[in-house]
Design a binder for these strands. Sequence first.
DNA 1: TCTGGGGTCCTTATCCTC
DNA 2: TCTGGAGGATAAGGACCC
Length: 370
Amino acid sequence: MDAFFAAIEQLRRPELRGRPVVVGGDGDPRKRGVVSTASYEARRYGIRSAMPLRHALRACPHAVFLPVDFETYRAYSARLMALLREYTPLVEPVSLDEAFLDCSHRTEDPLALAREIQARIRAELGLTASIGIGPNKLVAKIAANLQKPEGLTMISAEEVEERLRPLPVQVLWGVGPKTAAYLKQTHNIETVGDLQALPLAVLQETLGPRHGEDLYRLCRGEDDSPVVTAWEPKSYSRETTFQVDVRRRETLVRTVRALGREVWAECVREDGYRVRTVTVKVRYHTFRTQTRALTLPQATDDLDLLLRTAVDLLHRHTLDRPVRLVGVRFSGLARPPTEGAAASPSQTDLVGAQPAFLDTSRRTASRTSS
DNA sequence: TCTGGGGTCCTTATCCTC
DNA sequence: TCTGGAGGATAAGGACCC
């Protein structure tokens, strides 16, 4: 979807159409937070996702700043995904505003099919989508990003290597700013074509056996990953950045306990998992981030034990400098042992089979603590 | 001066067992 | 008894994704 959050805000508040709209944080650009989505009007001022709100304010003081309203975006997302599932049951939601569709069973012209989907999204949701068509997920995703907004790009299997060649390496999965800079520095690589020229052995030597081989295939547009419709979470977490850095241990303890309760409510009470590993994250004012983790002898649903563990882990941090963020994560998830018969597969498969942010029934957890 | 929050996955180090 | 793998589990950090 194009500028999804901002487009929804402009849709429900017509007076915002044509104006620069920035969605992020709690909507106050003088406070700590980053841009979630900028409307295309705001992007003209250089405003981008992940940019600090204060920077966005400086770049465009007359922009309209709005808080993130996940509840509403989730509702639009549910309608979008339902619409997509009319075309194929094989829909893999990547986030609220993005999905892969496996349409390999469909026989009509792919471009005509994509145009129909775009038209229906526009007519029924009032929003625009960009679509990429390719022989696999990687190529479809790259294609979708080539033309926006409301773009439509198809890359056939025969054209893949050639179409990818001129693109910057960062279009490939797993290549972010660090890896891109490293490839440039070590082998003067900037484009996917540069990468295609590198032998497998050199890539593996540069990036490690696993990542090297992945990239060797990805830069040729090779990707056999399936469209996955069901999904089990591996961890649940909550973290919070303080508006002002905190020195008092008491405040940190209180916040860790509050975050722990929130994670427990979602992970254990709502989704029915037991937890083996607790991790507490601390980010100091310097932005140095440290984690301390403990794996319990066995998985538990005991709130008191989990909170005590979290507080113990907090105290294993030095906490000798001002703290800007604390977080709590539960992982090593297990299902409680079922009495009598083995666990019913249907239940095992259904519960938690969707990312939490896609669950339309879920209440929005409070993201502000202390 | 600034740098959110929710995740996944990989690498490396270390400890332990066989 | 000592030494040296192999391999699993755990812990910590970091890159990356939306």
